[in-house]
């Protein structure tokens, strides 16, 4: 009898612990869901960009990517909670874009680790420094439009190897992608960013020789007729 009771008691304990385990698992799953809903989502932009069709300028350009550009991340704030909602890391993607565009536009491109390095290369004609000034994001949930939108504002600087100013100009870019059914925010933002980056590359390629300071410098040095 004692053994039977003992057996029954063990069964009861085992069933009880199974219930506790199930409850704990459910609680853990619920907490995970809650944490996912509240946590900030990081979107890392990446993309392959085509090399632009252009006649190369007979120039050797040194290019320096500042750390602000290399590590640029935009933070979208949740209007309701005031907390970070999305972190969009775009630095790597921007460097990739310039690394594709510049060799198609100039005869030679030299990557510089610092601006001081420019003077060590005697063949460099000018130093180009792109930097991002502003990044804006339009989410369909906030704008009530059926598109994801991205605006970019850049500051471009072209200087001589000794640091003398040639030109300093602002460029803006815009990209949008339709908000399709069952599409994730991640995919929508990435698509819009790719369009914006291509827009920037297109404007840069087609407009570089027309930038006032650049145009004067190119003519003065007989790089263009």
């Amino acid at each position: 009898m004692a053994s039977r009771l003992g057996y029954g008691s063990t069964m009861y304990q085992s069933s009880n612990s199974a219930k506790t385990l199930r409850f704990q698992a459910l609680l853990a799953a619920w907490l995970c869901l809650l944490c996912t809903a509240c946590s900030v989502s990081t979107i890392t932009l990446s993309g392959e960009y085509p090399a632009p069709l252009a006649r190369k300028l007979p120039l050797t350009i040194g290019v320096y990517y500042p750390d602000e550009l290399r590590n640029y991340a935009y933070v979208e704030i949740d209007d309701n909670s005031g907390k970070d909602q999305y972190i969009i890391q775009s630095g790597e993607s921007q460097v990739q874009l310039f690394n594709t565009v510049l060799p198609a536009l100039f005869q030679n491109v030299v990557l510089l680790d610092s601006l001081d390095q420019a003077s060590q290369h005697s063949n460099i004609d000018a130093v180009f420094v792109p930097n991002i000034e502003e990044f804006q994001l339009g989410l369909p949930s906030k704008t009530k439009l059926k598109v994801y939108e991205i605006w970019l504002k850049y500051n471009m600087r072209l200087s001589k190897t000794n640091g003398d100013y040639i030109a300093d100009w602002v460029m803006t870019a815009y990209g949008k992608s339709p908000d399709e059914s069952f599409q994730s925010v991640d995919a929508g933002v990435k698509d819009a960013a790719t369009v914006a980056m291509r827009d920037l590359a297109a404007s840069f390629t087609l407009g570089f020789t027309s930038v006032p300071g650049v145009s004067d410098w190119l003519r003065e040095n007989n790089y263009i007729p």
Binding site: P50, A51, L53, V195, R198, D199, A201, A202, S203, T205
Partner: peptide
């Protein structure tokens, strides 16, 4: 579009 880049982008 890729081959003709940048001549057939939305702005160009």
């Amino acid at each position: 579009l890729d081959a003709m880049f940048p001549f057939f982008e939305p702005r160009t």
